[in-house]
Design a protein around this nucleic acid. Structure first.
Length: 177
DNA sequence: ACGATGATGAAC
DNA sequence: TTCATCATCGTA
């Protein structure tokens, strides 16, 4: 049985949610076509103090979704070309989100949204079957040994403390090393 | 190693 | 209104 992850899953400490998202299924439906991809790589962006997070400069038009309820999509454009897909975590008023960097065979957040044709129209929408983009638990448990923690990518500007935080979680199968 | 490519936020 | 800066990727 697969169950759709809802607010009670996302509304917890961001790094915990991020780690638990590994192995969950990202589901994307366009009409009759359904794509199911197990999540393999994520990054946590947590709270006002996190200098790598968009939220650290306060509430803005772009990042306001991060301040809202958990379980909503935060989608934005970087480098003029690629949309980044994030799921909002934490309580309302507490800005946090998790960037989905890879799922299935796809590695890289830009490639993921390009492959699925996910765009900013989903920004601020609730992850649900009705929307056509959601995450569900198919009962897969990823062994701790297969989870690799490391610093986040592309956030050197955040200063040593935040740039070095191990908020990146990668599901590395035992078969490869 | 670097350019593409455009929204964003802050300065002026 | 202008400017530097990006949670990146493909090509070289």
């Amino acid at each position: 049985m697969s169950k759709v992850l809802a607010k009670n899953f996302y509304d917890r400490k961001t790094p915990i949610v991020a780690e638990e998202l590994l192995g969950k299924n990202l589901v994307w439906r366009i009409g009759e076509k359904i794509t199911i991809l197990p999540i393999t790589e994520v990054e946590a962006y947590d709270g006002f103090e996190d200098k790598a997070s968009h939220a650290h400069k306060g509430l803005t038009e772009r990042n306001k979704v991060m301040f809202g309820d958990a379980g909503y999509w935060y989608v934005y454009l970087v480098y003029g070309m690629y949309c980044m897909l994030n799921i909002v975590t934490g309580n309302k008023g507490y800005p946090a989100a998790i960037l989905i960097r890879g799922a299935g065979d796809i590695t890289g957040p830009g490639r993921l949204t390009k492959a699925l044709r996910i765009g900013k129209t989903l920004n601020g929408k609730k992850a649900s079957r009705a929307l056509g983009l959601w995450i569900e638990d198919a009962g897969v448990v990823v062994p701790k040994k297969e989870i690799k923690k490391s610093p986040r990518i592309g956030v050197a500007y955040a200063g040593p403390i935040w740039a070095q935080k191990k908020y990146r979680f990668v599901w590395r199968c035992a078969s490869d090393t």
